[in-house]
Every structure is written in structure tokens, then in C-alpha cells.
Simulated assay, not measured.
Amino acid sequence: MEPHERSRMAIPRFPVATTQLSSIIEDTRTEFMLCSYDDAVLVIVTQLGKLGTILHARKEQVHSGTSTFNVNVLMGKRDEPILVACARQIIEHMSNSGSSRSLVLSLGLKNHSPVTLRGIIDVIISNKVW
């Protein structure tokens, strides 16, 4: 069995590039949907079959020319700094890859361990849609 099952889904009359895949992370089937909009990237990750904590991350330019990254929890667990760290790592990678889009990330996870989140980040980065 392949560690990642991947399929491109073309949705007629809706011009959003979408990638759906699943992966086994820490013995748990994890579903991914990555959508590329003109101004943002939407990533939905679930081990529960539903949405979880929803975060918004964006790059901000500071007048000195350096960049900072702002991550906000829109809905869900506000007391899970590891979820914020996950979003920050993804938006930093997006920025380093040349993307200026923001990130909307939904994480519906059974396990919030660093190993699980590292696996999720690796799958998202290796299947980037930005």
C-alpha cells in the first residue's frame, strides 16, 4: 500500500485547483484536501471525518524589509500552541517558496503530538498547491 493515495479532482464550473489525498500518520488514516485560490490556500486535514480547529495565517511585511507571520485561531481550540506552530511552519514554507497568499488551515485531529503534526506538515509541503 502506498503511503499517500493521491487524486486530482477537477470540479466543473469551479476554477479552484484541488488535490485530495490520504496518508497514514502515526497509524491513523489522515485525509487531506488542498485548494488553491487566487488569494489564499485552503488546507483541510482530518482524522475525524470533519473540520476541526480553523486557523488563518498570513505573511506581513515590516517596514524594515523583514517579514513576520501572523497566525490566528478563527474557531476551535485556542489553547493548543502546537496547532499555531503547525500553521506557522506551513505559511513560512509557502512564503519561502515565493507565495504571497494567506493560508486557511483546518485541523481535525485525534492526536496533537509533535510527530503527528510533523507528518502532516511533510505531506502538505510535498503536495503543495501554491
Rank of each mutant, 00 (worst) to 15 (best):
M94T: 03
P12V: 09
G76C: 01
R8M: 11
Q20M: 13
T30W: 04
I121A: 06
D122W: 06
T53Y: 02
I120R: 05
R29H: 10
I44Y: 04
V84C: 09
Y37M: 13
L51P: 06
S126L: 06
V71A: 02
M33Y: 01
D79G: 00
N111W: 09
N111A: 09
S36M: 04
S23V: 05
P12Y: 09
S102G: 15
L34S: 09
N111G: 03
R8Y: 12
H4F: 06
V104M: 15
S99D: 04
S23I: 01
I121P: 02
L55G: 00
R88M: 10
L55P: 04
N70M: 13
E31F: 09
T116D: 05
F14C: 06
N96W: 06
M94H: 00
S7A: 12
R13K: 12
S102W: 09
I91A: 00
L105N: 01
L48I: 03
L83T: 05
V43Y: 03
L83N: 04
D39P: 03
F32V: 02
I44S: 11
R58H: 15
K77F: 08
V73N: 05
P15D: 11
S7M: 10
I125L: 08
Y37D: 05
H93M: 08
I25D: 09
H56Q: 04
E5A: 13
H4N: 08
A87H: 03
T66G: 14
I125N: 00
Q61S: 15
V123K: 09
L117M: 01
T46E: 03
M94R: 04
S99K: 06
G65M: 05
F32I: 02
E31T: 12
Q20T: 15
P3F: 09
I91P: 07
S99W: 05
H112S: 11
V84A: 11
R8E: 13
R101G: 09
L107I: 01
R78P: 04
P81C: 05
T68Q: 14
L103G: 04
A57W: 00
M75H: 12
L83W: 00
D39V: 05
N70V: 13
T19L: 14
E92N: 08
A57C: 03
E2H: 10
S7E: 10
V104C: 12
S22P: 08
E26S: 11
R101K: 15
V115R: 12
D39N: 12
I125Q: 04
V115L: 11
G108P: 05
L105T: 01
G52L: 00
V129A: 08
E80M: 10
A87E: 00
V41L: 10
T18G: 05
C35A: 13
I121N: 01
V41K: 07
Q61L: 15
N72F: 01
M75F: 14
D27P: 00
K128Q: 12
I54H: 01
